[in-house]
Design a protein around this nucleic acid. Structure first.
Lengths: 195, 195
DNA sequence: ACAAGAATCTGGACACCGCCCACATTGAAG
DNA sequence: CTTCAATGTGGGCGGTGTCCAGATTCTTGT
């Protein structure tokens, strides 16, 4: 199933090629790793010559980075939604972690792309990526700030706890998508940290 | 600096091309991600034609997988050495985790290759990789088995604890190599789990 | 309404890549 | 010493990313 944002009136000019290219690439990303996605194949899918993409993205990496921004936005949204739907600080933390892992498990290629040092996670984050990362750190930081005032967590260093939580959840996401951990291991493993 | 295993008498036949190719690729891996390493460049470095590698590796992925096996062996050895050098179960667990993170931080490309789903971490592990993974799981499993008998850890589910520890350590390794966490964050974050 | 210029798309080209082929050279086994 | 498998060579094919020149269309100022 292809996405619906793109439209092509059939003329010489596509009309919305930028979005169409991202959509086509996103479709490929559901079954193929970012490293194996070729610009020419994306162009073919969008029904356009192999050179058209260069008028919308500086190079192949730029297109992949744009997909990464979409992926990061979706990852952040999933966490925010999960947090909003949970009652109590501890429950919110658990919900955030499980949403993170669940997103990775259901969109493994997109998740990998967001943290791929060859594209999105190289050097300083892009202008669109940075605020998303900031909001995500804020979301977790605020939550942990509340957590260390809950009974059983008083006096814990919130910075270390944030790092530990992010690491655990990120590692679980990685190991589950690689098949090294079964998906059912996420919840009890998270409980070993937060319960 | 190039490695020393490879030798070339200058004749038509190289004499030890298999190792020389791995060495050349390993040198490249210190500065370049696995995805960007080309077989032709490796062959050039080894001073042979672009086709010689195919007599020793079925394809490009096979060479990368061989490097991955080397990397995994080094990662395992680092953990075993750290565990052997620590006194007490808790200290051993911490040492194992820090060694894991330290290996990733000092050999980021090799670490990434070991867990790259495009090469080493795809499908069922290779015949050479599987025993290394087994030994690593055994090392951690045994240690956690001891840990859950220590005061303060009685009654914890060792399986969940193993998964949590591996996840945390793996996530830290990943996030540190990506620059999302400073290397100094490893120790206090690990202490949030094991102390 | 229309000309001018900017934006967009096309095909061609180049260098590089992975991988296949046929052939050359060599070391080792009979 | 001959034969043969192992290992090396160069050539070639299809694919890729990216640059270039030129064609087409949208937009904007008058």
């Amino acid at each position: 199933m292809s996405r619906s944002v793109s439209k092509n009136a059939g003329g010489y000019h596509h009309g919305n090629l930028q979005a169409a290219l991202e959509d086509a690439a996103l479709d490929l990303l559901e079954t193929t790793s970012a490293a194996k996605i070729s610009l020419r194949e994306v162009a073919r899918r969008a029904g356009v010559s192999h050179n058209a993409p260069y008028h919308h993205f500086g190079d192949r990496a730029a297109l992949l980075r744009a997909l990464g921004v979409r992926g990061m936005a979706a990852l952040l949204a999933a966490q925010e939604q999960a947090v909003a739907g949970a009652d109590g600080t501890v429950a919110k933390v658990r919900a955030l972690g499980l949403a993170y892992v669940h997103y990775a498990a259901t969109h493994p290629q997109a998740f990998a792309l967001v943290f791929d040092p060859d594209y999105c996670a190289a050097g300083t984050p892009s202008a669109e990526m940075a605020p998303l990362i900031g909001r995500n750190e804020e979301l977790l930081g605020d939550l942990v700030g509340e957590l260390v005032q809950e009974p059983g967590y008083e006096g814990r260093d919130p910075v270390a706890l944030s790092a530990a939580l992010w690491s655990t959840v990120h590692g679980m996401a990685q190991l589950i998508t690689l098949g090294h951990l079964p998906p059912e291991a996420a919840e009890p493993a998270l409980d070993a940290l937060v319960r």
